[in-house]
């Protein structure tokens, strides 16, 4: 099963709606709560990253019996130094985003801690792609 979502950069009122829809779908097909929690944390953080940093993006979620695979692609400023972006506490978020309690530099590490595979590629002034997988069978 594949779910697709378009995300608008800067629109915080809708941040989390893709995560919420994916959570509902995983619940309906009886995926274990532990797996759902991990997918939701990782997907929410990645979704908010697009809203906070990019102009627009797309989320594609493939739900298979043995895994949930998520690919997020965005058009945006890209990440010049991915290793640095992965460090806890490092953030390039705007003051407005920080005031809301986002942009604490915890998002990417939250994602990495909750998924089984994690791959991020980025081109400056073009955009970023994040691929991540949560295995279902190994974690039941």
């Amino acid at each position: 099963m594949r779910l697709n979502f378009n995300i608008e950069g800067g629109d915080f009122t809708k941040a989390g709606s893709a995560s919420s829809q994916v959570k509902k779908t995983l619940k309906q097909i009886n995926v274990s709560p532990t797996i759902i929690k991990r997918v939701v944390v990782a997907l929410y953080e990645a979704e908010v990253n697009i809203v906070a940093h990019a102009f627009r993006g797309n989320i594609s979620v493939d739900i298979e019996p043995e895994q949930v695979h998520v690919q997020l692609t965005d058009e945006g400023p890209g990440i010049p130094d991915i290793d640095r972006a992965m460090q806890k506490g490092f953030s390039t978020a705007s003051p407005k985003v920080r005031e809301m309690g986002f942009g604490a530099g915890m998002g990417l590490s939250n994602i990495r801690d909750n998924v089984d595979t994690f791959k991020i590629t980025s081109e400056v002034n073009k955009g970023t792609t994040l691929d991540m997988t949560v295995l279902i069978s190994d974690n039941q």
Binding site: K37, E45, M100, M106
Partner: peptide, 21 residues
């Protein structure tokens, strides 16, 4: 910090905050 809560709060917790959005 929303990512802190997202990453570390547990189901069934009450969340104490001053964020209102």
């Amino acid at each position: 910090l929303l990512s802190d809560v997202m990453g570390h709060a547990e189901a069934g917790n009450v969340w104490i905050t001053l964020q209102t959005h």
